Amino acid sequence: MELIRTGKVKEVYNDGDVLLFRFTDKISVFDKIIPNKIPDKGESLCRTSKFWFEKIKEERGIQSHFIECPSKTEMKVKKFRVNESGGSRIWINYLIPLEFVMRYYVAGTLMDRIKKGKIDFKELGFRSTPKIGDEMPEPLFEMTTKFEKTDRPLSFEEASQIGGISREEIYEIKETILNIDNIIARTISTRNLIHADGKKEFAMGEGRIPVVVDTFGTADEDRFWDREMFSNGKIVELSKESVRQYYRSSGYYDLLYSAREAGDKEPEITPLPEKIVKETSALYREMYSRLTGLKW
């Protein structure tokens, strides 16, 4: 097999008529790969993704690129054309070069943008400045670039042009995401979890039907909170967000984004303390079981 792409988390191999994803134990935040590896992380992502791909097909007939998992860290998927410079409204079977985000609660970079005045909270439906953990009056659907150095929020017009998709197709993708997230929310409701937000990717398949690709519903792409703690006024992060919070509290996040906004050289990301590595490894194993209801 030929290695054709090395991502922040996965290695992608050409395996004849299909692709093989090999999930590694690498971890990244803020588009930076952290020097440490997180034991069992790759297996958790692979097995959790398999669970969701099978569930959305079974419950709603939603198409995905998933074929099978030859091992606990490998996944065979359908092959789609990749053109990093953009899509086309006349193509089929190509990866849409966008990332699609649905937010149900205020958290992460959304809170940052509200604080900096980059987003008017009134346009989101809030009467006053929201705080982290506030539920969105309506789910917030956003699109960002995929192949730029850092993810950049896009307007509908920009997303349509870069993705090679019509406004109607964007709404179709949005509706598909809402259906998927409904399945996620219903599935985890009995497992003391809240699905706060998540990212998904799509290809345009035969007949220009959106096909879910990459991975979703894991502790990497999505943000989950402990429901019982949330009801008591405390947000307990049960995703990669806990690692992001470490770098926020250490001051690295502020240094990084100050450099990005100024166009300066970005500071190298420092390794995680061993204690955080062990805690994060345990979290990924725990979240596989909590999300799927299956034993590790």
Rank of each mutant, 00 (worst) to 15 (best):
G117Q: 02
L124A: 04
P267K: 13
K116R: 15
P273L: 03
A282D: 15
M143I: 14
K116G: 08
R167I: 14
T109M: 13
H65A: 14
N192R: 00
W91R: 02
E221F: 03
F21W: 07
L291W: 12
I184W: 13
K55D: 10
V236P: 01
E11Y: 01
N36C: 11
D112V: 08
K57F: 08
K118C: 04
L256Y: 12
K199C: 05
S250N: 12
I188N: 06
A107G: 00
K275G: 02
K118E: 14
D112I: 01
E206P: 02
Y94S: 07
S160K: 02
E241V: 10
F53H: 10
D181C: 09
E274V: 06
A107P: 01
E74S: 01
S239A: 12
F230H: 10
I96M: 04
Y257D: 11
L283G: 11
P70A: 05
L110Q: 06
D112F: 06
E135C: 03
F23E: 13
L140V: 08
M136D: 05
P139N: 13
F30V: 00
T190F: 09
E168P: 03
K115G: 02
G61Y: 11
G86D: 03
R47I: 01
E84P: 00
E274Y: 03
S71Q: 02
E142P: 06
G233L: 10
S239Q: 11
T280I: 10
E175R: 14
M143C: 08
L283Q: 11
S49Q: 08
G163T: 05
E158M: 07
Y284Q: 06
W52E: 05
I184D: 14
D25M: 09
S64K: 01
K78Q: 14
V106H: 12
M143W: 01
R208F: 10
F21Y: 15
T129D: 05
I276N: 02
